[in-house]
Amino acid sequence: MLSLQHISKYYQTGGNKTFVLNDLSLDIDQGEFVSIMGPSGSGKSTLLNIIGMLDEPTSGYHYFMDQPVHQLKEKQRSALYKQYIGFVFQAYHLIDELTVLENIETPLIYQNIKGAERKALVADMLDRFNIVGKKDLFPAQLSGGQQQLVGIARALIGKPKLLLADEPTGNLNSKQGEEIMELFKKINKEDGVTIIQVTHSEKNAEYGSRIINLLDGRIESTTTL
């Protein structure tokens, strides 16, 4: 599904190159649940952003669903992204001015899906996440766990093949975190959504099927569970 080959990302500071990712190669198959771990500054988030096409590598080859992403134009990349990828953030990043329902609906609007169909899809999703009663609330009226739930619902509404999560439990307490991880596991198993998460927590990492440890922009070790 996803293949990174010799990916490097560096910044030019003075005469030196500061590497964030250094000649990194990685393959991920359909249906995997991958946890990326590593100390601060090891390049976890950058790697995730490159996979999510929010960021571009300085060099290397990037294939996603058999498409050479590194050769695609902005527009094609955006289309690919819209169709296959969902994103979950540590800080939830819900849009404050929109209600829960509208937040979840937004990706569908950008996919030009008709109103009636949108309503049905969103209703299903609210139902599935048990947040029907909260649909008209604004993000500020929800707890962190609930906000993240909405964030995940929003990421899943477009039926993505790949879900990217950047420390999804980072701002939550352990109980809320556990619930979110259980949810991830369920999504991975039942819907067959490939998940890649960045995490600091050993415990959360173990929900995945594979743990990749990064250090200084390289893969230090890979553990398959």
Binding site: G52, L54, K75, S78, Y81, K82, F87, H93, L94, I95, D96, E97, T106, P107, Y110, Q111, R154, G158
Partner: peptide
Amino acid sequence: AREVGVRKTLGAGKWQ
């Protein structure tokens, strides 16, 4: 700016 960023990750195109 944050809203713009989020919308981009949700698949918003430039023209939208």
